[in-house]
Design a protein around this nucleic acid. Structure first.
Length: 260
DNA sequence: GAAATTTGACCGTC
DNA sequence: GACGGTCAAATTTC
């Protein structure tokens, strides 16, 4: 029974430490884990006791390249809020490697992590490796517009496909929607657009400033766009996901600079 | 004063 | 023991 209790206690502690928390209190008081109690913070005073031996701090396991996604980009920006937690000189590399984790790690338990290293060549490109997935609610800051497009034909994953698909649904977070012009002229695309509150109003973006392609956490592709409101002289950006099947729409954005 | 960054130390893997 | 990844105190920025 003691052995079983010891095992279950240990598993419980491993489980809690995996989620970033460690109570330091063994399940059973008689399983001989007094050292764990000794190292736990003094709850009453709020101060850590001076460790007799150097305190173990966390997990330092090397990351596996499996389950990682690599992206080469001219910018470190990707729409998410990252917090730098380390920088390291890497052997045989001119530039240091920077370590980032999601800013919302503590709020939403988001485990997304990325490593950024400048390319050795003169291209000024960054080699970005992503680990884990974002579990925080929204990419980027909450004030930015988020647009998600769903397409009927989502089977064919050919970029710039000649076979147009139809936008069947567009969801825009009403709280961050920047501009919806219900009087804007309708087009083939906008005919099939509807806003988040189902008023079927079309969306007009005055000017698309720029766009770049990437991959979101579930393997689907996304288009990052920047918008400028010529009336208000403000700009914002957002994402179009699952657009990859819709070559006509993408061409519209990239070639004409705008769409309704 | 809170949040973000820097940087030396610590720790696990090879 | 070297190396890469992480921690956390000190420092900087807003």
């Amino acid at each position: 029974m003691e052995i079983l209790e010891s095992f279950s206690g240990g598993l419980l502690m491993l489980d809690s430490s995996d989620s970033g928390e460690f109570s330091g209190v063994p399940v059973s008081p008689h399983v001989g884990l007094a050292s764990a109690v000794d190292r736990s913070p003094d709850v009453r005073s709020g101060k850590k006791p001076a460790p007799a031996v150097k305190e173990r701090r966390g997990c330092y396991k090397r990351r596996r390249t499996i389950d990682s996604r690599v992206k080469i980009s001219s910018t470190m920006e990707d729409g998410y809020a990252w917090r730098k937690y380390g920088q390291k000189e890497i052997l045989n590399s001119k530039f240091p490697r920077c370590y980032f984790r999601c800013t919302h790690k503590h709020f939403h338990g988001c485990k997304a992590v990325k490593q950024v290293q400048k390319q050795e060549d003169e291209s000024n490109m960054f080699h970005i490796t992503y680990f884990g997935h974002h579990t925080c609610p929204t990419p980027g800051t909450l004030s930015h517009q988020q647009v998600v497009l769903d397409f009927e034909d989502s089977k064919n994953n050919t970029l710039f496909s000649n076979s147009p698909s139809t936008i069947t649904n567009i969801r825009i977070d009403p709280s961050v929607k920047q501009e919806v012009d219900s009087k804007a002229p309708s087009t083939d695309v906008s005919d099939n657009l509807s806003s988040g509150n189902d008023d079927h109003s079309s969306i007009r973006w005055n000017e698309v400033l720029g766009a770049d392609l990437g991959t979101c956490h579930e393997g689907a592709s996304f288009l990052r766009f920047e918008l400028e409101d010529s009336c208000a002289s403000t700009s914002s950006h957002g994402y179009l996901t699952d657009f990859i099947n819709n070559g006509d729409l993408l061409n519209d954005i990239l070639l004409n600079g705008a769409f309704s």
